[in-house]
Design a protein around this nucleic acid. Structure first.
Lengths: 339, 339
DNA sequence: ATGAAAGCGCTAACAA
DNA sequence: TTGTTAGCGCTTTCAT
């Protein structure tokens, strides 16, 4: 049986209120009593029950986080930043790893509600109707990190995916590539699917390049699909000389595919990634990538959520973070080279 | 204000007891009442408070997890397996990312206690005195995953690190390597530091090879330190022809270092990793590695912990999982080659 | 089959 | 400065 505040009170010869007071650092307690209480706490190894506390204070200091894939370097990095800020503010993270399992998400969202989490962070945008309804129904601040779902009412911390993709493609064009392929994401995703694709298309159009639909493919952001889609690209009549791949994971898959076909990056084909994950520095050649400020994104997400929770202000606008082109080794400059 | 059981009762025209009964699926409730109650629940959007429930039931369904580094593929993979089993059993994970920050761990452990988590999983073995004391004091089942701390009383789910390292080294020897270097971990760690080093040394001794201390170095398991240590190895008079590196992350760092020095893996130097993480398939050449059954490890950890919690049995012995040599492309066979 | 009431461990008026 | 007491939202005897 756990020791409780009453036991401490008895041991110290004071009332529970007094114990509660020293526990919560109130001033109106004489030093000698305070000492007695602390002594009793030590001797008994007493730890106040947060759950009893939560019940009366109506405050749990819990944040629910829904991650699409914990094993992904991108998400786990965001998560670690979130955790850092949360922990610094005495909040704790309840984490759920839904891997495509939309039912699991619903189940968790319900659990979050029942556990009275004070805020919810979601890192994917495949929000279906029941989930949308649930989120709207429960009155808990919800914030999206790195993605923006269709629903206007939800706020997000993101980069401008359209502009980022535009800039990435533009860079490839400036490097003198004529034929630039594209490996996109899920077109049901606004942010990472549609917007990045639009950015690519418009950058191509802006410099008068026609889209070669044979060179445009879509994967699921993961390494293997980058590999598979690249394989298809290599099978086309005249493969592109550069490919913009909308996740670093897929980009690494693409690079491996190229290499496994005895071609070289960037000599034969240039690869541009997206995300700026740890992988970019880890592979050889190092991956040039359109970087999202991953750590900042996690930090800001949690900070904004905290503000919503504390009611300081409920920002009704998305937070757009700056993207940045990180030039490394996977893209070749074709300009001042003879054909 | 949140809607509570009383509101539901009023709305349905029954007592709170009855509501509670339908909530918990008890049988002694007539169908018409049950229907009324469920209707009221729907209309009100009622979600029972887990925190009130926990208080009376003395059951939180919470598990605390302490991870050394969320961004590491190894730990996040274990974590995702743990999450899967936990979630399937209606447990939720409270996760803490301590990056070297031992104070943070203590703080979290305290928080875990106050939140009345039902079990704790720890994935590192740098347990200092205050932490050891705390763990012993609080009466919450604790289990270590992938590591074994010094304290005999704690149980662990691990591979036999000594044997695994022995086998890895033996393989390199069988491949015909005469000069085998070693990049180890933190020697304050029993499992991943000392045991793996012993395995290496004894395998060398078993085949009559003398240790070349110049070829033995220690890092911190992370990519960068693998790179740095390898650099030192390359700077020795006659670098080894093979290196056993005790984490895949460091192994990848080592491979990159070799490549950046215009040498080739495995032609010039063979690299053997440890862990069998996602990275092994991701780099080129693919990394030969002594694999820990990462997913299984997470699963078993959670399963054993669950048994402890449910009191089925409190295993007083470590669970040793089988290691497996995964031969890929980073080790060269020197046997039937002319010098 | 249903309800009244006690109590889970704590905090916070309110009194003293 | 300290103590008494009434809840917090639920479950669970114990009656009925």
């Amino acid at each position: 049986m756990q020791v409780k505040i009453k036991d401490v009170a008895k041991r110290a010869g004071v009332s529970v209120t007094t114990v509660s007071r020293v526990l919560n650092g109130e001033k109106y307690v004489k030093d000698d009593l305070k000492a007695k209480v602390n002594k009793a706490i030590d001797e008994l190894g007493y730890a106040p029950s947060q759950i009893a506390r939560s019940l009366v204070r109506k405050k749990t200091n819990l944040i629910g986080v829904i991650v699409p894939d914990l094993t992904s370097s991108f998400y786990s990095t965001i998560l670690s930043s979130i955790e850092q800020v949360a922990s610094a503010n005495d909040y704790h993270l309840l984490v759920c790893n839904i891997s495509e399992d939309i039912d699991k998400e619903l189940k968790y969202l319900n659990a979050f509600q029942e556990m009275r989490v004070e805020g919810i962070i979601i890192m994917h945008e495949k929000i279906n109707e029941p989930i949308r309804n649930l989120i709207h129904k429960i009155h808990i601040p919800v914030i999206f990190s790195s993605v923006k779902p269709m629903d206007q009412k939800f706020i997000s911390v993101i980069v401008d995916d359209y502009a980022a993709a535009f800039d990435a493609t533009k860079y490839l064009i400036e490097l003198g590539h004529e034929s630039i392929g594209f490996i996109g994401g899920d077109m049901r995703d606004i942010t990472s699917g549609q917007n990045r694709y639009s950015g690519y298309r418009n950058a191509m159009a802006a410099s008068g390049k026609k889209l070669v639909y044979e060179h445009i493919r879509f994967g699921d952001y993961k390494v293997q699909s980058g590999y598979d889609q690249m394989k298809d690209l290599l099978g086309t009549e005249t493969p592109p000389t550069a490919v913009f791949v909308v996740s670093d994971d897929m980009a690494v898959g693409a690079m491996n595919c190229i290499r496994d076909h005895n071609l070289r990056v960037p000599e034969d084909i240039s690869i541009m990634g997206f995300d700026g994950s740890l992988l970019t520095e880890l592979v050889r050649p190092k991956l040039t990538s359109m970087e999202q400020p991953i750590h900042l994104m996690g930090r800001v997400t949690m900070e904004v959520l905290l503000k919503q929770i504390e009611g300081d202000k409920m920002p009704d606008e998305d937070v757009i973070l700056a993207h940045r082109l990180m030039i490394r080794e996977s893209c070749r400059n074709r300009n001042d080279e003879r054909n």
